[in-house]
Simulated assay, not measured.
Amino acid sequence: MNTFTEPEERQELRRQVAKLAAKYGRDYFAGKARAGEKTTDLWLEIGKNGYLGINVPEEYGGGGGGIGDVAAVCEELAAQGCPLLLMVVSPAICGTIISRYGTEEQKQRWLPGICDGTGTMAFAITEPDAGTNTHNITTTARRDGDGWVLTGQKVWISGVDEAQNVLVVARAEDARTGKVKPVLFVVPTDAEGFTANPIPMELVSPEKQFQVFIDDVRLPADALVGDEDGGLVQLFAGLNPERIMAAAFSLGLARYALDRATAYAKERAVFGQPIGAHQAIAHPLAQSHIEIELARLMNQKAAALFDAGDEMAAGEAANMAKYAAAEAACDAVDRAVQTHGGNGASQEYGIAGLLVATRVGRIAPVSREMILNFVSMHSLGLPKSY
C-alpha cells in the first residue's frame, strides 16, 4: 500500500461528503450566519448519512472509524464553504473521550445522539483567568453525598445553544494527597445553576461563542466520565483529536479560498490575458498549494499515529499539523483576497469574511506560540520557557 495516499475507502468518504456539502455551499452557510440562523439541516443530514460519528464505535451508532476519518469529513465540509466548528467539539473531543473512558451506560446514553446529530455535546475547558494554562482552572467539583456539585465559569465555549450537554473540565481535591486533579463531567445545558451568555463576535458564523457560569450545579454520580483519578491522560485523549480537527478545519478553508482564487485568476482578463498568466498572481497561489499539501500530509500522519495508539508521537505531529494548517489558511485567504483585487472585499465573492475565520486558527484551540513552546521543549530539547 502507498502510505502517502489515503486508503480508497477514505478517498470515497471525502468524495461523498464533498458531494453532500456542495448541495449547501458557501452561499447557504453565509446566508444562515448573516441571518442569525443555524445550519441544523446540514448538521442532521451529515448525521443521517453516518458521517458525523464516523469515529465512534459501531455499537453506539457510529462508523467504527478513526480520527482520520472524522477529520476528513471536517475538511471536506470546510472545502465546500461550510466549516462546521462543532465537528471539532462534539464527535471528535467528546465522542473520543466518552468512547474511550465512559461506562457502558454512558456510551449508550450519549454516543448515539452525538452520532446522529440530535444529542450534540459542547466542551468546556477554557477559563477567563487561566487561558492557555489549564493547570490553573478554578472550576471545582466537590462531593455531595452520592453526587457532585460544580462551581466555576468558562469562556469561549462553542455552540452551547445547540448542545444538549457540555463536557466540563473541573478539578477536585484528592482525598489521599490533598492535591487537585482534573475531572470530567457531562452537564446538561438546562441544569439549574448553569447559564450561558453569548459573546459578541466580529466573526460572522452560525456557531456562537459563550461565557458559561456554573453556580452550584448538582450532578449525579454517573455524570463523572472516566476514573476520577485518571488525571490528564483522559483529558489529553480529547485534546490531540482537537488539534487534528482544528488542522482539518483550517485546511478545508484554505482549499476553499485557493479554489476560488484559482478560478478567478483563470477567468479575470486584464491587459489581454487572464491574470493567472502573471507570476505575481500565479506564484503566491502555487505557494499556497504547496503549503496546504504539506500541512495535509502532516495531519494525515498525526491522525495515523493517534489511531495507532502512539499518543506521544501523535501529540507532536498534531501540534505541528495544527500550526502548519493555520499558517497555510491565513496565507491562502490573504492571497485569495489579493487575487480578487477590489472584488476580494465584496460579499458577492465571499472571500474577505474568511480573513477572521482563518485568523482564529492561529489562536484556538491552542496558540501558535504555545505550539512553538511545545516543539522547542519536546522536539528540540530546549529549556522550558514558561
Rank of each mutant, 00 (worst) to 15 (best):
A364F: 15
M87K: 00
H278R: 11
Y386T: 14
Q106R: 00
A326S: 12
P182S: 00
G62T: 08
G381M: 06
R362K: 13
E127D: 10
R260I: 10
A364M: 09
H289Y: 06
A303R: 01
A302N: 07
D215E: 14
T5N: 01
F213L: 11
W156P: 00
G193V: 09
C94F: 12
W148H: 04
L44K: 06
A280D: 15
V183S: 04
A263P: 06
P220S: 14
E8R: 00
D161A: 09
G353C: 07
L13D: 00
M201F: 02
F185Q: 03
G342D: 07
G53M: 05
P112H: 06
P284Y: 08
M320T: 06
V73E: 02
I351T: 04
I292A: 05
S367T: 15
M377H: 15
I54S: 00
D310H: 12
S158M: 02
P7R: 00
A302C: 09
V168Y: 08
A303H: 00
A317I: 04
P128K: 08
Q279E: 11
G62H: 08
V155M: 10
Y101E: 03
L52T: 08
H340Y: 15
C330E: 09
I97N: 10
R34A: 08
Y51P: 07
H278F: 15
G159Q: 06
E316S: 15
W43T: 09
D69T: 05
G81F: 00
T339C: 13
D334S: 15
T40Q: 10
A22C: 00
A175P: 14
M320A: 07
E207Y: 12
A79K: 05
N49S: 09
V169I: 11
N133Y: 13
A196N: 07
I125F: 04
Q164V: 05
S158I: 04
A21L: 07
P7A: 03
M201T: 14
G119L: 07
L253G: 03
A324E: 02
T140Q: 11
G252H: 04
A141G: 12
V56D: 01
A248H: 01
A170S: 13
Y323D: 14
F236K: 12
K48R: 15
H340D: 03
D229H: 14
G66P: 08
V168D: 02
R296M: 06
H378G: 03
A33D: 08
A329N: 02
A318C: 05
K384C: 04
V166M: 02
A357D: 13
T177G: 04
I292R: 05
D161Y: 12
